[in-house]
Amino acid sequence: MLVNQEQLLQAIWETVVMVGVSLIFSFFIGLVLGVLLVVTRKGHLLENQIIFTILNAGINIFRSIPFIILMVAVIPFTRLIVGTSIGTAAAIVPMILFAGPYIARLIENSLLEVDQGVIEAAQAMGATPWQIMTRFLLPEALSSLLLGITIATIGLVGASAMAGAVGGGGLGDLAITYGYQRFDTVVMLLTVGILIIMVQGLQSLGNYLARRVRRR
């Protein structure tokens, strides 16, 4: 094996950092966009055709760019934000841009699943739009939201594997540079094995949390 334990741990850590940090940011971006996508649509709380159309189209555009292209395309923006275009921090910027719109769609989906009657009940009791969002829509959608976030997190683990292209490091990078390019089967199997365990763990965690908040 061409990789020592330290390198392996380093790679795992980089993957965790990339996924964790980009998840936090993209979650907040996705939350805001997702909620806006729902409440500005026709007949909803804060109907606004213009905002809805712009958001809807904008999200579709971002979602249609393959991640590897997106990563390269946003290099100037990345440099502007983190001061460099290579390394782990530089990989996080495109990952956020990739996952934010994705999470927005997942959140939109979860919120639309909430029974319209609940919103009606909230309006009937004189709740403000903000209260309807925070006290009715989001809590009711929480279980489904958690499952959505799980999907997005696993998507980010996948994306982080491509971060090697901008020198972001991580497990994916290790697999490509040692496992693939230098024909080290052991490293390849090892990294893939770790990724499988990570994904399984994340999915189980997501399922557990979703079940806990659902209480049905």
Binding site: A121, M125, G126, Q131, R135, F136, P139, E140, S143, R216
Partner: peptide, 27 residues
């Protein structure tokens, strides 16, 4: 003006207590 519905429209994620309290919490 209170209102009740055919399909009750309760919050599944909240207890009976919180459901009943909701109009007061909102106020």
């Amino acid at each position: 003006i209170g209102m009740i519905f055919q399909h009750f429209n309760l919050l599944h994620s909240k207890t009976v207590f919180t459901n009943v309290a909701m109009p007061l919490l909102v106020a």
